[in-house]
Structure formats: C-alpha cells, structure tokens
Design a protein around this nucleic acid. Structure first.
Length: 645
RNA sequence: GCCGCCGUAGCUCAGUGGUAGAGCGCGUCAUUGGUAAUGACGAGGUCGUGAGUUCAAUUCUCACCGGCGGCACCA
C-alpha cells in the first residue's frame, strides 16, 4: 500500500501501482474527465502512469497552466501524426510548446503550403476522434536509436544519440499502435482528450538545431487551448494586435513611410518628426538634470579609426563602407562609443572629471541582414539615445544604480510598465578571465540591488567583453520589449587608450558604461505607437487640438481661437472645410486627435469652445482663455508637470 | 542571408491567356449642415522589374527587386 497526500492536506491509502487516473475515478467521474495530467511530488506525471511509492498528488485540468501546456504538447504530437499520415516520408524532428501554442519541425523535400492546413487540421480532428490511448514506454538508449533508424527517423535517432547520456533510459509516447514519438512527456491519457480548440497558424523555415549552417526544416506553428472560447479570444487578441501595428498606424496617421530604395530607412513625415522632437527634447531635459553632457560626433570616419577601435575586425560585415575618389576607405558609424572616447581623450582628464557622462542622439548605420528588417523595430539607420559614462571602477555600482532609476522613471513617463531587468552573464565566447567575470557580474548585480531591483539572470546573454543589464518593459497588451540597456566595458578604453590622472598623479584607465534608455528613437516610437494604439497622450500627440467649424460663420473665430491656443503652447490645426460637423468629428476621431474643439455661431458669440475628448462622446463648453490654460497644462510633458508641482 | 507566401489605382481588395474593376480617398461643383461618412460629376493603373513561352501575357514559366511570417543574426 502507498500513502497519497492531496493538495487539501488529506491523505489516503492506495494499492501499489495505482495511477492518478484510477485515483481520480475513485473520487468522481467528473474529476476524472476533467483531469488531464497529474503532479506527483511536484513533478508532472501522466494520468496513466503508476505511482512509484508514497506521494503527494495533484490533479490538473486545462485551467491550470501545466494542464494547458500538456494540451499544447499533445496538439504538437497529433499534428505530427496527422502530417505523417498525410505526407508519408516526412520525418519528424522536434515539437515543443511555446507561448500560446506549439510548433513542430518537419523534414520533407516538398514544401508544405498553408493550403494544406485545412486538410491537416481535419486529419488532426480525426485522430482526436479515434481517441487513441497514449502510452508511455521506457526504452533503452541503443534500442531506441536502432528503432528510429529502422523506421527512417534519422533526426530522432540523432537527437537521442546527442542528448541522452549513455545508460539513461528514455521515453517514447505512443498513440495506440499507430504512431509514436520520442518525448519526455507527460501527455494526455488519450488523443480524445485533446480539446478541438486548436488551429494551425503559419508556416516557416527553421534551421535544424537552430544553426544556420544546418539544413532548413519546415516548421508548422499552431495554437491550442482548453476550449473553443479561449481559442476564439486568442484569435481576437491577434486581430487587436494587428490593428495596433505601427507600420499600419504610421501610414494612417501620416507619421512616416519607408520605400524600397531605402530598405530599413525611414522617411519621417511632419507629424512623425514632431513626435520625435518631443521625445528627444524630453529625454534631453532628463539627461541634463541627471548630469550628462551632450555631444555630437562625425557620421563618417576613416577605416583606420575603425581598425583601431576593433570594429573593422569584428563588425565589418555590418558596416556601410564608402570609397572616395582619393582612394580613402570610410565607414558610416555603426556605434557612437569610439567617437565619444575621442572627446574624452581630447585634453587631459582628471579624476575630478569622473564620472563623466557623455550623451549623444547618435545616428548610426548598420547593415542588417534583409530578413531582419521590420518596420521601425529593426532598421538600418537609426538614432540611439546613447551615452557613455566614463568612471572609476569603484563608481560603477553607483552609476549603474542611478541609471536604473533614471531609465525606470523615463519608461514610466511613457506609460511603459517595467516587467523585469535581465542580467546578461558571461557568454561562451568571451574575453577576460573567470575572475574578471565573477567581479563584473557581481558589480552589476549589486548595482541592480542598490536600485531596489532583483534582476532575472539571463545565462550567457552578456556582451563578449562584459555583462549587461537589459530592461524588459511591457506594453498595454502585455507584449514585452527590450528597452534600455547598460553594459560594462573595460576593453574599449584600453584599446583606444583612454586615461585620466588620478589622485596619485599617475595615469589610470577609466571604465566605460554604455547605456541607452529608449534604445533607438525609431524603435521606441514603434513601441510607443503600438502601446497607445496610435492614440498618443496629449503631451506626445503631433496634433493636440483641432478646431473644427460648424459653418462658415465661425471661420474667423476659429482662427482666432487657434491663435490663442497656439500662444499657450499647443499644437493646433484648424478645419474650416465645407463639410458637416459629423464628418469632421469622424475624421479627426479616426486620426485619434486628443481634443476636438467645435465652434459654431454660438461659441463664436460667447468666445467659448465645445471640447470633445478622444474616445468620449460628450462635450464640455469652456471659455476660450480657460480652455487654453487648461489644455496647455494637460499638454505639459511629465517632467515639466512635476517641476510645476 | 535562409525557408515559405505575397506584389493590380494613394489605401483596402476583386478579376481575366485577347492591355482591368469596386469601395474609401483625391479633384470640381452644389450644399452652411450642432458632435463618427451630404450629394452629383470627374481624374487616376506600363497590373513590382526584366526575360522566356505564345498570334497575343497583368494572367503561364524563370530570374531579380520589394513586402509579409518565421529561422538565423542583433557586436
């Protein structure tokens, strides 16, 4: 007999070898029906797998995160079986669970087409209807390899060979006697338990083992949920996200465009550039208040310069190179750091100058692979809100902590909630000794803690020369973005021979902290557009107020009112077109203008404005001067608003 | 860069082996209307580029360019 403990604290005795399924059935039929997988002593466990001794047992349904994960995992298996039934000769490779769903990578000479999806989904449903029992089988490694080789599954055989240590048993999961796959599990009791709330989403190429030197497999992505409502909600969420797409909104709101002659380059239109300027001015004020100095360094520099900085050697493939008629080879700067070191080196620096915080809205060009380009999010010409802090080693923690606070405050001002800060630790390929990395990682960790943040460790994610902290922010629909970073650097000051004179009268090497709050203006504006779905808060909106007339009789007053609002510092447009007010309200609402000020004969007479806010249906009638003062106050950037108190 | 899909008017999209259509937008005219579309008329396209097949290609084939979705990349 074995002793089983339940989550509510109760305990019961069962016969040896009892399964969670049998336990569930013993409690109630509906519980057995609902339970998809068990948690035994904290470990996920098949419902049909016998317990191996005393245990705590928890039964999970599709409502539990772990239960949903099993659903998705089984959906991947059912997909694989369906594909192999429909397309004999296709080899399976791996099929993991991902956010919102799953994928499976197949090896097949013929490409799949998304036209095949319907057929595959039908076959998947059929496999669900067959309600095949899913059985866990324990195999010995060599036997499993031989088995997969025999049935022509070379990839599977290779996975076992590479991943499983010799002597360790492995598990296969079989769908009845029709199909089986190497898998750690756990899985549902039978294919019939897979909710028919799955959908194949997209088709993509993916390298075997994620290595671009390997052959490319065909990946089929799917989504799977506990019930149809969840699936429907998910599909609705995707639609909502598409509506927020910054590329679509960028065109509709006349912010920017891109065209084929300038791949990865942005044409900023008037409204987009206003946005840019507002953001830049705001950040500039924040930097100034935080003790930064602003500089500007050359766009194009001689090859020799980049050879010295090390970029020519390590980064040449990503640089835009130019040749001159006088046989010089130049490069557009891909980064600002070497330029900043030149300014640091100009004249002599004393320890009294440190920490020296040097900022630049630095326009950089990088030749990014064409497949990497994506709207404003990944471009070839961008402007970083870059800065380098030159300091002594003992100042690293204080400077880093101060930066974390500054960056967090700025992100908040833009309405982006911080999710977590990631500490990127030593990568496999790295410069520097283990002692150096121990010290550097500890410095970054302590700095984060000093700022009241416990970073999430991102193993191996550091730069090759030092660890870094990355800011992960969350937007309004829960998507995550990396926004802001601070990286330690001992290498570049050494390479470029930066020095300062210390208290001891000797020359010493400063340390550099590379840091950015927004990352690049382009990318940040892209994130911002999607975060607010194009409806910018008053202080950022390119047009803050549209004065719209009801009839010609109000035209004169509309111009007058606009002048008063402009004088108060507002960005104002006037709409005196011969259209109905309904039409104008609709149009400016679609343009997501924060305030529409409607004026007719009545307002003109009384020197008032009828204000209608974006998203609201009602209006408030306010005197012109009062409205100007109120709106101007609302339109203040957050830092100025705080200063005003 | 790699795999797949896509490329028709400013935008969203329909369509065909015999050189093309809708809605919105745009222009003109009329309308001066009180909070999400006033009406009429009109202009607008080398059907991504180049080559091939064909009597004939926007349509079929190939290449290239670009876009999209992934993968790889993001020092």
């Amino acid at each position: 007999m074995i002793q089983v403990k339940f989550p509510d604290g109760s305990e019961r005795e069962f016969e040896d070898g009892i399964t969670p399924m049998a336990i569930a059935e013993g409690i109630s039929k509906s519980l057995a029906k609902r339970s998809l997988v068990a948690k035994v002593n904290g470990e996920l466990w098949d419902m049909t797998r016998p317990l191996e001794g005393d245990a705590s047992v928890e039964l999970l349904s599709g409502k539990d995160a772990d239960g949903l994960e099993v659903i998705r995992h089984d959906a991947a298996h059912v997909l694989a079986q369906a594909v192999q039934e429909l397309f004999p000769g296709t080899q399976v490779t791996i099929g993991p669970v991902i956010d919102d769903g799953f994928y499976y990578d197949f090896a097949r000479d013929e490409p799949f087409s998304s036209d095949d999806f319907e057929k595959i989904e039908k076959k998947m449903a059929e496999i669900v209807d067959r309600d095949l029992p899913i059985n866990r089988e324990v195999w010995e490694k060599d036997a499993a390899i031989a088995h997969f080789k025999k049935i022509g599954e070379d990839y599977k055989a290779q996975i076992i060979d590479d991943i499983i240590p010799p002597g360790e048993a492995i598990t296969l999961y079989a769908h009845g006697d029709q199909w089986s796959d190497l898998c750690r599990g756990p899985h549902l009791p039978s294919t019939g338990r897979l909710p028919k709330a799955f959908k194949l989403m997209k088709l993509a190429g993916a390298y075997w083992r994620g290595d671009s030197n390997n052959e490319m497999l065909q990946r089929i992505y799917g989504t799977a949920w506990a019930d149809e409502k969840q699936l429907k909600d998910h599909l609705t969420r995707i639609e909502e996200a598409e509506k927020r797409d910054h590329r679509k909104l960028g065109r509709e709101l006349d912010l920017f465009h891109m065209q084929e002659e300038g791949k990865g380059m942005v044409f900023w239109h008037e409204k987009g550039l206003i946005l840019w300027h507002v953001i830049e001015a705001y950040v500039r004020r924040r930097l100034e208040a935080a003790g930064y100095q602003e500089v500007r360094t050359p766009q194009v520099l001689d090859r020799k310069f980049w050879e010295q900085s090390g970029h020519w050697d390590k980064y040449r493939d990503n640089m835009f190179i130019a040749e001159t008629a006088e046989d010089e080879t130049l490069s557009l700067k891909p980064m600002n750091c070497p330029g900043h070191v030149q300014i640091f080196k100009f004249g002599q620096k004393s320890y009294r100058d440190l920490p020296l915080r040097m900022a630049e809205f630095g326009a950089c060009h990088r030749y990014e692979p064409s497949g990497a380009l994506h709207g404003l999010m990944r471009v070839r010409a961008f402007t970083q809100d870059d800065a380098h802090i030159f300091c002594r080693e003992d100042q690293i923690e204080e400077e880093t902590a101060a930066f974390i606070k500054l960056a967090s405050s700025i992100h908040e001002d833009f309405g982006l909630e911080r999710d977590y800060i990631a500490l990127g630790t030593r990568p496999e390929l790295r410069a520097g000794s283990d002692e150096f990395w121990d010290k550097a990682e500890a410095q970054m960790l302590n700095a984060a803690r000093a700022a009241g943040v416990e970073p999430v460790i991102a193993e191996g994610d550091g730069a090759f020369y030092a660890p870094k902290l990355d800011f992960q922010v969350k937007d309004a629909i829960g998507r995550e973005w990396t926004c802001g970073t601070i990286q330690l650097d001992y290498v570049l000051p050494e390479r470029l021979n930066a020095e300062y004179v210390a208290e001891d009268g000797q020359k010493h090497r400063p340390v550099m902290l590379h840091r950015a709050v927004l990352g690049s203006l382009e990318r940040f504006i892209g994130i911002l557009i999607e975060n607010v779905a194009g409806a910018f808060p008053m202080w950022l909106s390119p047009v803050q107020v549209v004065v719209a007339t009801i009839s010609e009789a109000a035209d004169g007053y509309a111009e007058e009112a606009a002048a008063v609002l402009r004088k108060a510092g507002l960005r104002v447009e006037v709409d005196t077109r011969g259209e109905k007010i309904n039409y104008k309200v609709r149009e400016h609402s679609l343009q997501k203008i924060p305030v529409i000020a409607v004026v007719g004969a009545k307002e003109a007479e009384e020197r008032k404005l009828a204000l209608r806010r974006f998203g609201a249906k009602d209006q408030s009638v306010v005197g012109l001067d009062e409205a100007a003062a109120m709106l101007a106050d609302e339109a203040l950037p957050p830092d100025l608003k705080r200063a005003k108190g």
